[in-house]
Design a protein around this nucleic acid. Structure first.
Length: 214
DNA sequence: ACATTAATTGTGT
DNA sequence: ACACAATTAATGT
């Protein structure tokens, strides 16, 4: 199991695997855990104890508005980590976000103190963290752009395509209502747009599933 | 296999 | 956005 973790790290986090000392630290301190789909891993106000590295599956990061509405911030895929957790790492604040297993997933957990300490000790770790922040920042700028400049049609199509890549499957098993929540749109609007996409032969619809055609 | 129920999806306003 | 109709899947008998 330990050597299996090592090979997953090499595959998913190549930058981290370059430093053998860091890999040894991983061996000693990392806990891997599996979560079933829909499990809440971190909730609003929780104290963060670990930095998660996604080994497998997809996680969802949500934020709650002042008026109690939940907004999807972004998805975490294998090889990624939660930038929001790092900010907790530095400030010791409670969690501003909710982290939820979008699919069954496997996560490596790094204790906060270690993650902090490694910043000084290991260049590879520090670089990884900064890269993660940078990548997340640009990804979020991108989504803000799309929110501002594209209509819901576009967003829906891009959402479906990116989900399909994430789960490596043409068939997305979700209800229209779930998709609507992710896009902060009404369920009816999504249903109608999906039907339009079906008429255009871009997707095939079934109950709780959407298959992308190419 | 069939009926009942619940959940999802479609439609008109 | 809402109300309700239609359809589909899940469950019990």
């Amino acid at each position: 199991m330990v050597k299996e973790l090592k090979s997953v790290i090499k595959e998913q986090f190549p930058q981290l695997a370059e430093d053998p000392d860091l890999l040894k630290e991983f061996d000693k301190t990392i806990i891997t855990r599996s979560f079933k789909k829909s499990t809440v891993i971190v909730d609003y106000g929780d104290h963060i104890k670990y930095i998660p590295l996604v080994l497998d599956g997809v996680l969802k990061v949500l934020r709650e508005n002042e008026d109690g509405k939940e907004v999807l911030l972004y998805f975490l895929e294998r090889g990624q980590t939660c930038a929001a957790s790092f900010s907790c790492c530095l400030t010791k604040k409670r969690s501003e976000i909710k982290l939820i297993a979008d699919t069954n997933c496997r996560v490596a957990l790094i204790p906060l103190a270690k993650a902090n300490n490694w910043m000084k000790k290991y260049d590879a770790w520090r670089d990884y963290v900064f890269n993660a922040f940078e990548a997340r920042l640009f990804a979020m700028i991108d989504t803000v752009d799309r929110l501002a400049f594209t209509n819901l049609d576009q967003q829906l199509l891009e959402y479906l395509e990116s989900r399909s890549v994430q789960i490596a499957d043409h068939t997305i098993r979700m209800s229209h209502a779930e998709i609507a929540r992710d896009l902060s749109a009404s369920r009816e609007a999504i249903s109608r747009l999906l039907k339009k996409l079906e008429d255009q032969k871009k997707v095939k619809l079934g109950r709780n599933k959407i298959t992308l055609e190419h």
